[in-house]
Amino acid sequence: MNEPDMNPELSLPSFTRPPLQEVAAGVQFAPLGVKSVDVAALHTLLAEEYPNWVDAPPLPPSFETFGTVPVGTFPVPPMLLSGTPPWLPRAWFISADDEHIVQAQPDRLIVNWRRQPQGGHYPRYAEVRRRFRAAHDAVERLADKRGLSRPLANQCDLSYFNVVRVPEGADWPDMDRLLRGMRLNPGPGWQASLSDAQVSIRKVLRHERDVPFARLSVDCLPVLDFARNKSWALNIVVRGQPQSGSFDSVLAFLDAAHLEIVSCFAAITTEAMHMEWEKQT
């Protein structure tokens, strides 16, 4: 799967005006022995597409586990990291139009697309994937040049963050306008005049041998959009372990996660919303 010629968008539900605000494709790997000078060298390799650079706090390592009760993202006690060398910042390399970001730290690479407040066109998963691949190629070239081992993946994630304005005449608790069947229907004796509501859904993804490898998480919660209109954030994330540490396995994981997320999104949202988002297939 070095150069997949498949179109990952084929046969998936597609929307002309999806409510996406951000998409992030990420990989976590065994820490590379890089120094700050290497981060500058990585920026040089990527500067044509991402001329701007800011620093952010590093993300702690995180792993999906598969117990009966999901523990979510376990907050890593800072003391557990105290024995490790000082962490470099997480570098954000940002495109000139502010829509695309490459985030890099010694054990993490993330590629983001984000919608601008004035709008913009979602460039589709294939473009996010292309940029992810290019950024990973740059990290590999840098590792080769510095005589470091190449990134060995131990965790991947693909995240879709949607923001949907609450329709006229509805309010935050009326999530059935966005999500199929999510209507609270209380019995008599209690006046359900709710101020807001949230929904979380989890699904463990399994290999053919029924071994778990990832978890899909859906969270719907009340937010305000850029214009401070009442809206729902609908976040769909797949996180887990690629089949091996190779980059081919990382891409295979992301492709499977993309399929799962888009199928889930189309299946849990209402027909009325599909019309608003101009569903094509």
């Binding site: 586990t65 009760v69 523990v71 105290s82 024995g83």
Partner: peptide, 29 residues
């Protein structure tokens, strides 16, 4: 997590940070 290399007075390797965090998340589960 805070063990240094050579922690056993010989060549004992300090555990990798990712391994420690992974164990923390597994035992939390």
């Amino acid at each position: 997590a805070n063990l240094p290399d050579g922690w056993d007075g010989e060549n004992g390797a300090a555990p990798e940070g990712h391994t420690v965090i992974f164990v923390a998340q597994e035992i939390a589960s």
